[in-house]
Simulated scan of single mutants.
Amino acid sequence: MSYSLSAACCWIILAAILAAIPSNDNHWRRAYFLMALGLPIVVWVYVNDGLMWGLAVTAAAASIFRWPLRYLWSWFLRHVKTRAE
């Protein structure tokens, strides 16, 4: 296993541990930290291991960030609808 895939696996384990710890702000600070840490790791996986592994890590990251992605998608749709009117 390459170093980039090992880092991605460690990142996923860290995300699971951070999600298990109670939080007052619904885990948003931890999500921002994981996003800042995860983006370079995902790029590293794409560069070192190719498209298929990169897509697999991207899918894993998307499953971890499902709520922030839903908020981003609804925000995007609201802004597209207001500009269309």
Rank of each mutant, 00 (worst) to 15 (best):
M1N: 10
M1I: 04
S2A: 02
S2K: 07
S2I: 09
Y3C: 07
Y3N: 14
L5P: 02
L5Y: 04
L5R: 13
S6A: 04
S6I: 13
S6N: 06
S6Y: 06
A7G: 09
A7W: 10
A8K: 08
C9P: 01
C9A: 14
C10I: 01
W11T: 01
W11F: 09
W11G: 01
W11Y: 05
I13D: 03
A15Q: 02
A15Y: 05
A15L: 03
A16C: 08
I17E: 00
I17A: 08
I17K: 09
I17C: 09
L18M: 15
A19L: 09
A19Y: 06
A20P: 01
A20N: 09
A20M: 02
A20L: 05
A20T: 14
I21T: 05
I21L: 02
D25Y: 07
N26L: 01
N26Q: 05
H27L: 05
H27E: 00
H27F: 11
R29V: 13
R29S: 14
R29E: 04
R30H: 02
R30W: 00
R30Q: 03
A31C: 13
F33W: 04
F33Q: 00
F33M: 11
F33Y: 08
L34R: 07
L34V: 12
L34P: 04
L34Y: 03
A36K: 04
L39K: 15
P40S: 01
I41A: 01
V43H: 03
W44P: 05
Y46V: 07
Y46N: 02
Y46K: 10
V47R: 08
N48F: 12
G50Y: 07
G50C: 08
G50K: 12
W53Y: 15
W53Q: 14
W53N: 13
W53D: 03
G54I: 09
L55R: 14
L55A: 15
L55W: 08
A56P: 10
A56T: 15
V57D: 00
A59I: 12
A59Q: 06
A59M: 10
A60G: 06
A60C: 06
S63A: 12
I64H: 01
F65P: 08
R66P: 01
R66Y: 12
R66F: 08
W67F: 06
W67M: 05
P68M: 02
R70V: 14
R70E: 00
Y71C: 01
L72K: 11
L72Y: 11
L72H: 12
L72N: 10
L72Q: 11
L72W: 15
W73T: 15
S74A: 05
W75I: 09
W75A: 14
W75P: 04
F76Y: 13
L77G: 06
L77S: 09
R78M: 11
R78Y: 12
H79C: 09
V80D: 00
V80C: 04
K81I: 15
R83H: 06
R83Q: 01
A84W: 02
A84Y: 03
E85H: 15
